[in-house]
Design a protein around this nucleic acid. Structure first.
Lengths: 105, 105
DNA sequence: TCAATAGTTCGATAATAACGAACAATTGTA
DNA sequence: TACAATTGTTCGTTATTATCGAACTATTGA
């Protein structure tokens, strides 16, 4: 009874992941989630507080529907986490390689 | 006196590359260029002949301005090639990893 | 000089992204 | 039970980007 639409591991596509990470804002969200090594609320993972929350919500949906993150509801917050194991199973080494170069941008 | 706008190696960004490859059409163009291991004309590298050539031109421009490909003029054709060495220098292993999983999509 | 070829550019329309406002769901508090 | 506060989604509008066909440029070959 997940309220969010997540693709199954098999349905995750490479271009979906690349497209998700090809946007600077979404990349920074993903980096934040990676650093935290746990789940974060949307506003917590947001790279800045100037962006409209409707826009933020839109980006989280793209991240979610690409399969890069999983969102669960906890109280009033939506907690987000990278689907590291799923991505690693489907595309071994991809996240390592990408995040290795994502730091400085 | 190149007629095309190519970023210098240092100006190539990760999200530019990911964004370029995050589109299925552009990914297939890049794959074609990789397989050929040489340069190809735009129409030669195009994944299908139903797409409008103005649209194709647009995608080649994005690939070019991301730094993923280099375009040179040879007669009436524009020859395109992946900038493998440049990308490899800036992001070692990135193209290997990405193209390893790009085949089946 | 003229036709053929390969791409680019332009103008119009379609699709997508950004924003603020209104909404829904949950929590805490009186 | 209200009711306010908080988090995020949805909706409607506007701005940006993608797609297309038509017109254009540059080059080649007849």
């Amino acid at each position: 009874m997940s309220q969010f639409l997540h693709p199954s591991k098999e349905d995750i596509t490479l271009h979906g992941i690349l497209n998700a990470l090809g946007d600077p804002l979404r990349m920074r969200i993903a980096q934040n989630l990676l650093l935290k090594q746990g789940d974060m609320s949307c506003s917590e993972a947001a790279p800045c507080h100037t962006i409209a929350k409707s826009t933020l919500s839109h980006h989280f949906r793209i991240l979610r529907e690409s399969g890069l993150i999983r969102t669960t509801k906890q109280g009033v917050e939506h907690r987000n986490a990278l689907r590291i194991e799923d991505i690693e199973e489907k595309f071994p080494g991809l996240l390592d390689t990408v995040f290795k170069y994502a730091g400085a941008e």
